[in-house]
Design a protein around this nucleic acid. Structure first.
Lengths: 210, 210
DNA sequence: AAAATATTGTTAAAGTTTTAACAAAGATTT
DNA sequence: AAATCTTTGTTAAAACTTTAACAATATTTT
């Protein structure tokens, strides 16, 4: 379908930003947007916007711009967001709880199917009406609820073990919030989100700029 | 001190990973590590490790490797983590609450000085023993508590306004969890962390790989 | 209807980052 | 103590990403 050549990773992240702006523009009745409009709203250059889109096809009209709604739909399809995805969260600690209740996932097409934890005090309870199950039920529930993505929100020492279990259960992609590298077999996609490291970029640049 | 040339942004993120591994290695009594050890543990190549470190100096001994503790200390200094930093969290919703209680910040030298929200029901209360104040007190508290970094954990429509207030109060760096671009004046460092976008990388690659 | 203006898609150039290769230097073995 | 092995720091090449320029095409103005 797509992928004529290798697409920069950063392009994918920008497409996500563009789509949010396009939705907003369309909501406000702005039917047509230019690469300049998109660039302005998302903090990149117009050339970058056009280049990013050009990887996937020709979506605009020269002299005119892009149809907001139409380009939104194209990008959502590129990102695989023309359908909904079921995800599981492993770890019902503070972070896991917050992620379970985070509205931003729903809005973008992600349904949290269930939560896993191995604390007997938590198993059987619910967070925001989502069931918490024992990790022993992982494989069963992944199949039953057609879960494709997993979020690891457990302490670092447990992360690799949880990752192995997710992969064994048949999950295809993982977001890892534990500040540790996890290794998985080929064809499983992993993204590490290290919250403290985000602050460390700031402190590095603050130190450097003085 | 550092910065002979432009340092890749990704290098900073990797230094953060390296430092976590070095701490662990030292704890386990592994006094010396090679670039290969670090690479293995963090999922990069040995050449990458050596290149990253070379931007900042010569820390190893040929034929031997690096002293774990010593390299850890160097990297922590590079990242500005040889001292502690005070941060404020704006937004006491689910995400703000979770971040307020996240142990990973403390461990890396970040102290959450206070939380801001404009919901009268929340103001005056505490989360994990941290005070919640009205946004009106932002400027005062930033000065009083020597707060340098801010975390935006409010809904997207409020993010730009909060960013402006943080900057006016004298904050130097911002992590923005709202899925929207914020603009700030020069010399203020911003990092956007878009949680849903992380999932969208996965769905993009899953679609692409079939 | 011609000229001016707007804006895309594409190509080439510039810039950045990663990878690979290897000389230099220390440790270990024979 | 010579030879071999290990591992860094550095240099050069390769790969990748962004920026800039501009022809192509549509719209608006004169």
């Amino acid at each position: 379908m797509f992928k004529k050549f290798k697409i920069p990773d950063a392009t994918i992240g920008r497409l996500s930003m563009y789509s949010r702006y396009l939705w907003e523009a369309d909501e406000k009745g702005k039917n047509t947007v230019s690469s300049h409009d998109i660039a302005q709203a998302t903090g990149v250059t117009p050339a970058q916007v056009r280049k990013d889109l050009a990887y996937f096809g020709e979506f605009g009209t020269r002299g005119v711009g892009y149809n907001s709604k139409e380009l939104y739909n194209y990008i959502m399809k590129i990102l695989g967001l023309d359908k909904r995805w079921s995800i599981a969260i492993v770890g019902a600690g503070n972070l896991g709880r917050a992620l379970s209740q985070y509205k931003g996932f729903q809005q973008r097409g992600f349904d949290i199917a269930c939560i896993f934890d191995n604390d007997p005090k938590k198993i059987g309870k619910k967070i925001a009406n989502i069931d918490i199950y024992s990790l022993d039920l992982l494989e069963e529930k992944v199949k039953e609820l057609n879960i494709v993505l997993g979020i690891i929100a457990v302490p670092a020492p447990a992360a690799q073990d949880v990752a192995d279990k997710l992969v064994n259960a048949g999950i295809r992609g993982i977001i890892n919030f534990a500040p540790v590298n996890i290794t998985v077999k080929q064809n499983i996609f992993v993204r590490r989100v290290d919250l403290a490291a985000q602050l460390e970029y700031l402190t590095y640049y603050l130190e450097e700029s003085r």
